[in-house]
Design a protein around this nucleic acid. Structure first.
Lengths: 354, 354
DNA sequence: CGCTAAATTGTAACTGTTTCATATTCCTGT
DNA sequence: ACAGGAATATGAAACAGTTACAATTTAGCG
């Protein structure tokens, strides 16, 4: 559409200056740069995509980069994305927005600079505005594992409130009255949902919500261990814990074994699973489950179609978690908790009560 | 250096034709294309890197793409790579060579087309030649988890023969005489090493090598289960199994529990770990260990330096695995194996005896 | 105010790509 | 064998954006 020379003519400057301004090169007067950027925006100028014909979508993180730890969400997600792009021969680039985006460029030009045609966005509370802005600019994007009311934003996420509630109800039906929640400190709608589900279940069954039973944890092995350590040390300890993270669940199971707590006889544990980890753990744990890989697959598939112009439909999808009863939940034992000999070394660091 | 017009002049064709040939566009006579490609090669012509200034290295797979399953090598590797590139603000692109490389282009031009300046290569037996060719072309590359004699090839790998041998010796010292090997069907030097270590340990201690005790497995949960199922069904079953894969080890532990085999009393199991999985399993398993994340980190760090021109040193590094004794290895019980009631359902598919 | 150095901008040459017209080749039916 | 027509291959020229270098403007300072 608009060319460098047109913009240059319009502003009465040279093409060289326009080129420099658009590429964030040094030695351009900031006023001139602003004028050029504004004119380019108005004229709908878009940087030429790299001549080389390759199709690539990005998996973009707002700040910190992928945590590829065992059992965590992101490797499964990436695995699904890879499956989702193979048909159309797209490549996948991993981006860190905070690290690389220049303040002076729009998201569209940022992605253009990175040579990506579409983006799968990971998102947390403090970066929702980024997703909004990207969608506002009209750049092909899909947010994964978050939901939005703004109809411009495409997303695919999993509804976990309902099954979180079911999980807690399951524990209540088994006879538990003091049920703790080990929730990790990521702040996003998904985790609020899980917390809401927990509280709803309590409320529905006339159980008091006790803030002392809320443990804010780091989503790893130690976090789960710390949660158990803290919770069983309470004067009136819980008989069951609901964890919202797979690694924490595994950590909790291990720590219980260390200190001689038998699961589920002494303590029931319900966890959360993004893939198949619940079956790899011992005992296989009762769990609210979602399939992160499938989320990635569908997001990538849609995005690739969208970028290829094969669809202009928005993607606004909520999948459902499912609840699976395994071997870590049972009726609470009568009488007080009795721990075996060794209390287990204190795992260093990692969360605390809220 | 050489420009399109120079090459065109030299061959007596037009720049347009040269451009088309170099970009693998249709409608170019194959003879002409060959002449152009040859001339370009001779003249040391390199496609202009994308005008956009972004630094990116690729994680390239020869054929199938990253398997991001729980506990497997590749997610840890990627995690390390991501850590390794953050300093220098490189991005990481995931590539499938087989899927995308055109037969008519060199590896260098393939990577140039993909806008990557360096590449971390995953490699197996059937793709060693690819690594060789890439190194021959002088494209910045580093192979991960394979070793080469060819001094042109940069690699970082882990020596696992020694500790595989120690692992088996550990079992022998405990009194085991029939020790099986569950090795997965990936064919690379690393896995041959592990097999060699196993056989050396047997030979050194005057134990007969029994091919019936070799089980060729698929590197997943089912593979480990199948290995146990097959091996305990033998007329003269092993009292210990050495697995070369973490997932298979976990699968084996689970299957043992299912069929009522107590580890390590009834059967000793020594596994392999690329990250921390051994501590997440139950019981935490005795294991030969490497740190895939660290491998990725060092590979990426070196590659980024190499690409940035901060080093011209080759990278030819062998790290050592380490051997960690945990709770799945003990002296064999006297007398025959006795299984508890339920034999457990047969897991479908996944490897068989060699 | 004059002088110097740095910052800014323009000119022009250079890069590779692409459209359109032209030439060549390859079929195909007679 | 050959005319006709379609597909293929090529070239000329116009076009894209980038960049070295020179020209100009601005800023700082005595």
């Amino acid at each position: 559409m608009a060319s460098l020379r047109q913009i240059a003519a319009e502003l009465g400057v040279s093409v060289a200056t326009v080129s420099r301004a658009l590429n964030h090169k040094p030695n351009v007067n900031s006023i001139t740069r602003e004028r050029v950027l504004a004119a380019a925006r108005d004229a709908g100028y878009s940087m030429p995509s790299a001549p080389r014909s390759t199709s690539v979508i990005a998996l973009a993180y707002p700040t910190e980069i992928v945590r590829a730890d065992y059992g965590s969400f992101d490797p499964s997600l990436l695995s699904g994305i890879m499956r989702g792009v193979t048909d159309k021969k797209f490549d996948v680039l991993i981006l860190n927005i905070q690290r690389d985006k220049l303040p002076s460029e729009t998201y569209t030009s940022f992605f253009a600079r990175k040579n990506v045609q579409g983006v799968v966005l990971r998102c947390f509370d403090d970066s929702r505005h980024i997703c909004e802005e990207i969608a506002e600019e009209g750049f092909p994007s899909v947010v994964v594992a978050e939901r939005f009311d703004n109809p411009k934003i495409n997303f695919i996420s999993t509804e976990s409130r309902w099954d979180s509630r079911r999980a807690v109800e399951h524990l209540i039906h088994l006879g538990h009255r003091r049920i703790a929640l080990g929730i990790h400190h990521v702040r996003d709608t998904d985790h609020r949902d899980r917390c809401d589900g927990y509280r709803e279940a309590l409320a529905d069954h006339g159980l008091e919500y006790d803030p002392a039973l809320l443990f804010d944890l780091v989503a790893d092995i130690r976090g789960g261990a710390n949660a158990v350590r803290y919770l069983v040390s309470l004067a009136d300890p819980p008989t069951a814990i609901f964890f919202t993270d797979p690694l924490a669940t595994i950590g909790a199971l291990h720590y219980c074994r260390e200190i001689g707590l038998v699961v589920p006889q002494d303590l029931s544990i319900v966890g959360f699973d993004d893939s198949d980890v619940r079956h790899h753990a011992f005992p296989p744990f009762t769990s609210v489950c979602q399939d992160a890989s499938e989320l990635g697959f569908e997001a990538a598939r849609w995005l690739v179609k969208r970028v290829s112009g094969e669809t202009s439909e928005p993607l606004r999808v909520m999948r459902q978690t499912f609840f699976e009863i395994n071997q870590t939940s049972a009726s609470p034992r009568k009488g007080p908790l009795v721990l075996s000999t060794n209390r287990g070394a204190l795992p260093p660091s990692g969360g605390g009560p809220r």
